[in-house]
């Protein structure tokens, strides 16, 4: 599975499983020296492998904790 920074391009390429993160380029796992935030992205990416509801291409938005939303599938 792949972590992606641009939904526009992810939708064009259509990898089988993609977690689209809302971070700027250079910061795919959110923030430096923030192990908890980095693990949260990795956990969400790995969870794409075990979600029985997902169908290809599975393009899922990552919503950081505290943003008031949950990870949502589109």
């Amino acid at each position: 599975m792949v972590v992606q920074l641009l939904r526009l391009i992810t939708e064009k390429v259509r990898p089988p499983r993609a977690l689209v993160v809302p971070f700027r380029h250079g910061y795919p796992l959110d923030a430096p020296d923030e192990p908890g935030k980095q693990r949260a992205v990795l956990t969400a990416a790995l969870n794409l492998l075990t979600d029985p509801e997902l169908k290809p291409p599975a393009i899922v938005d990552f919503i950081p904790e505290g943003s008031g939303q949950e990870t949502e599938d589109r």
């Binding site: 700027r24 380029h25 250079g26 910061y27 959110d30 430096p32 980095q38």
Partner: peptide, 14 residues
Amino acid sequence: AFDHTGIRRDPNLA
């Protein structure tokens, strides 16, 4: 095209 500051500070970022 991107800010390298983060990965230089903590390569775990990528």
